[in-house]
Amino acid sequence: MKLSSEEVNEIALESRLVLSDQELENAVRYINNFLDMLDRFKELDLKDVEPFSFAEALECPLREDAVKPFANTRAILDESAHVENSLFKVPRIMEE
């Protein structure tokens, strides 16, 4: 099933991307070619197949609950153009 350019545009906006006409045209072609490629999966019987995970890394390692403050927090804040009094300032969140 092909995706329309409206649908692709909708997905782009969900990803917070506003596409130019040219970009949208490319994206529609790209996505539909891509989905065609993925349709190959339908040839396989995947009913009883487990999703992949690395056999050796089966277990999540657990970290000790010990405080280690990050030494460079100032450098983190210095990278933002929106910091005021150590807070990150952002524009209106609630859309009107």
């Binding site: 997905i11 906006l13 990803s15 917070r16 970009e23 790209y30 524009p91 209106r92 969140i93």
Partner: peptide, 30 residues
């Protein structure tokens, strides 16, 4: 930016190149 959505959209639309955008949209779609 007048709103947070506008800020995110402007930053991401300008900041990412076209191949990256295509892959983001594809990944979101999937």
């Amino acid at each position: 930016a007048k709103g947070i959505k506008e800020m995110f959209e402007r930053v991401r639309s300008y900041g990412f190149g076209s191949e990256v955008k295509s892959r983001i949209i594809a990944g979101t779609c999937l």
